[in-house]
């Protein structure tokens, strides 16, 4: 992992001066966003692993520039129990010295992107009935169904 100082949209500008990287990123493409977030498609162990990695550095040295962006499925915060689990997630991040984390809800736009570019979204997990599946492993029909339902949920 590398830390790119300057959060916000700095990864677009930063990327414009960085050549190709061994992880498959092409020259001058945007780097990972938010200065701490994993490169798209690389966080295959889920949110707890991302947070543990992101809090390995001393955030005070980069104060006010470290930012971790994470994606959550809307179903995760539909119940009280689910919300409590997200709170525990955030608390652990700060317990370990994290500075700034923000969550984006996975919306229809992201799911449509994932259908078009599965290679960039191989880590995207969708959940139903206590069951987790990689979005890219679902049949097209089920993907379409989730895309239409996600629109209603937001």
């Amino acid at each position: 992992m590398y830390v790119m100082r300057g959060g916000g949209s700095g990864h677009f500008w930063g990327g414009m001066v960085v050549g190709a990287l061994p992880d498959g990123r092409k020259a001058y493409e945007a780097t990972a966003d938010g200065s701490l977030s994993p490169v798209q498609g690389m966080d295959i162990e889920g949110p707890t692993a991302v947070m543990l990695s992101a809090t390995k550095i001393n955030h005070m040295e980069y104060a006010m520039t470290t930012l971790l962006n994470m994606k959550l499925m809307p179903t995760m915060v539909q119940t009280r129990e689910g919300i409590k689990k997200v709170i525990a997630l955030v608390k652990t991040f700060f317990d370990r010295g994290g500075w700034h984390v923000q969550f984006n809800m996975v919306d229809q736009k992201i799911l449509i992107e994932a259908q078009k570019h599965p290679e960039r979204y191989r880590n995207l997990i969708v959940r139903v009935g206590g069951y987790s599946a990689y979005f890219v492993d679902l049949t097209k029909e089920i993907q379409d169904d989730i895309i239409s339902r996600t629109q209603h949920a937001i």
Binding site: V126, V128, G129, G130, Y131, A133, D137, L138, T139, I142
Partner: peptide, 16 residues
């Protein structure tokens, strides 16, 4: 009792 409604999320894995 927990009820787990049927879903077809696993169908793609049969193909795989």
């Amino acid at each position: 009792i927990d009820l787990l409604p049927y879903h077809r999320f696993g169908e793609g894995k049969y193909k795989m």
